[in-house]
Design a protein around this nucleic acid. Sequence first.
DNA 1: AGGACCATGTAAAGAGTTACATGATTAT
DNA 2: ATAATCATGTAACTCTTTACATGGTCCT
Lengths: 170, 170
Amino acid sequence: MSLRHAVLGLLSEEPASGYDLMKMFEISLSNVWPATQSQLYGELGKLAEAGLVDVSAEGPRGRKEYAITEEGLAELRRWITEVEPTRVTRSDMLLRVFFLAQVSPDQARAYLRHQAELVRERLENLEGVRGFLREREDNLSVHGRITLEYGLRLGKAQLEWAEWAEGQIR
Amino acid sequence: MSLRHAVLGLLSEEPASGYDLMKMFEISLSNVWPATQSQLYGELGKLAEAGLVDVSAEGPRGRKEYAITEEGLAELRRWITEVEPTRVTRSDMLLRVFFLAQVSPDQARAYLRHQAELVRERLENLEGVRGFLREREDNLSVHGRITLEYGLRLGKAQLEWAEWAEGQIR
DNA sequence: AGGACCATGTAAAGAGTTACATGATTAT
DNA sequence: ATAATCATGTAACTCTTTACATGGTCCT
């Protein structure tokens, strides 16, 4: 149930509407915990019902601004410190590598080369995020940079692996 | 729909029953594409209905052995070479890092230290898999080693990141 | 007036998890 | 005998995705 905590986390910085959250998910959480608009509105409803958030204001166009409650903040902290992260690794990219014997060595190498290219693009994209984050000093940016560094480091490792793997075929 | 292709991939090596596949998923695919027993039997039914696999033999205790069809093999190859891998990264571990400002610096550092420890355990586990794979020369083992190398390299990057990140707090 | 954007919601389908349910065969 | 393992299946629930549906407000 991490979507719930992603929403609580964003609301712990400042109150926001479903629409605002949607934008925040797109900008800052898309690489960590993507969510759709549809999911967001549903979750906000459940969160309000559970008393973890409140409708703090209403605006034009039926806008409802939600604020985290004390209970919600407590739940967020409990989740951060007490709940063990679940390790679910599902990678259809890697699944293909596992079965690469089913295609020709040329196709296999092309596949790995293509993966390397995709990772390069992703790294460029992350460098863009780095630029966006530079100079900003709020909580989310500080920890956003730490999270970003994770993406950068793992991306580089992935790139080196893809290049190495290509050399391993035949 | 990658579960489908994971099953096709395993069946491309040799025919197997749902029970056999279950064991194979546990041993070799648990770090790449985990699946439950329940999912497997459902998928085999759908795969048979779609003509991608056949019941090739029946044994004691209602055992049904499935074999991949030509159509199934074609679909597997198409999926490997033509379908773009989907990049879905969801990490509740990283999500917590993003919101680490909500707990004390001590708690935050403890969290990162704990993550480092978990990665170390995971790396040890992967070294065990490496031992298991050593000397084996079948298709799945060869590509299994390439897949394993991925886990090892990314695990190491993750470990270094966690240690670096701990130093970044305050 | 019209386009861009703000804003919320519902429905249906697909995937994955957990638990339940049942029974046969093999080895000690 | 009985425990371990082989073997298959269903049900209920949660999460995620995609599509549909609707309308208000702001800016030029």
